[in-house]
Simulated scan of single mutants.
Amino acid sequence: MSKLSCSENSFTPIDIFIEQVDIKGQYIQLAAPIQLSGQLNISELLALYPINEASDQSLIQIGIDEAGRGPLLGSVNVAAAILPATWSGLIEEQPLLSTPLSILTDSKQLSEKKRDILYPLVQQNAVGHIVADIPAAVIDQVNILQATMLGMRLCAEVLLRSVAKYLNAMDKRHFEVLIDGNRCPDLDYGALALSGIERSAIDCQAWVKGDARHTSIAAASILAKVSRDKTMYALDAQYPEYGIAKHKGYPTRAHMEAVATLGVLPEHRRSFAPVRKALES
């Protein structure tokens, strides 16, 4: 039996600021806080992922993707999503047919209009979702690859721990953590075990172009991309002369001309060569 009755409708908000991280037993003070926000519908999760009586197990897929590794400006955003069990699977097998997410695929293959339509639909229909905002200062501190992997790790761990709060030792649920890319983050399996999820219950898989293969990764790609675009539009309102709404931080000619003329913003990634050169000139 689970700790929460499936008849209850429980939306658990996730809103966390992380200022320190434990990396291989060493605590690192981050140059700026990482914010993670989202929600978990635990009653839906328990209802849609029932224990299989034959195997006494249930498999939950968590898709994870990022947006914003290449830009010179702003955060990199990482997102994770758990879709209903019957919606989770390979896109080519069309598990989303006749669902509100029927047009969902890799966010890069969709127009901004379609992404904006899908964004609230993913939030409303996902069993659980979370977005991590890793600011430029952290990217400069640890480099973009490590910042992205850290965001993926935190999204997975926070979502797993949030689920674990509502399970007990009799709930033998297993998790597939599906990562878009060619490597998995180094999860803190010790901390997860203390939360009740053993290492043997977690299968982390890296999928190159996974956002075009798995529905859960595609859902995460929408959350990551649109949430990052929202921060770019907010920066555009703050610094309209930089044209951020058009280039979204990427090193376009217009962006580089604005930096040369107006200077480097606090939100620029100083470790990136074009920004570093602008600071030195």
Rank of each mutant, 00 (worst) to 15 (best):
A219M: 00
L72W: 04
G196E: 03
Q238E: 11
L265W: 02
G38S: 12
G68Q: 06
E157I: 01
L223S: 07
D229T: 00
A260R: 04
Y233M: 06
L97V: 12
E44H: 11
S88Y: 08
N9C: 11
T215N: 09
I217W: 03
A32Y: 02
H255Q: 10
R173Y: 15
I103V: 04
V158K: 13
G128D: 04
E44K: 13
L265P: 11
L265H: 01
D56E: 14
Y119Q: 02
K3T: 14
A258K: 08
A220F: 05
Q57K: 14
A81K: 04
P95N: 07
R173W: 11
L118R: 11
S58K: 09
S162Y: 08
L121C: 06
A31P: 12
F272V: 08
C204E: 01
T261E: 12
D236P: 09
Y49H: 09
S37D: 10
V275H: 10
K172E: 14
P50V: 07
T231V: 06
V158W: 00
G263K: 05
D203T: 00
G38N: 11
I117W: 09
G89S: 08
P185W: 02
V122L: 05
S200G: 07
A219Y: 01
L154C: 12
P13I: 13
Q57R: 15
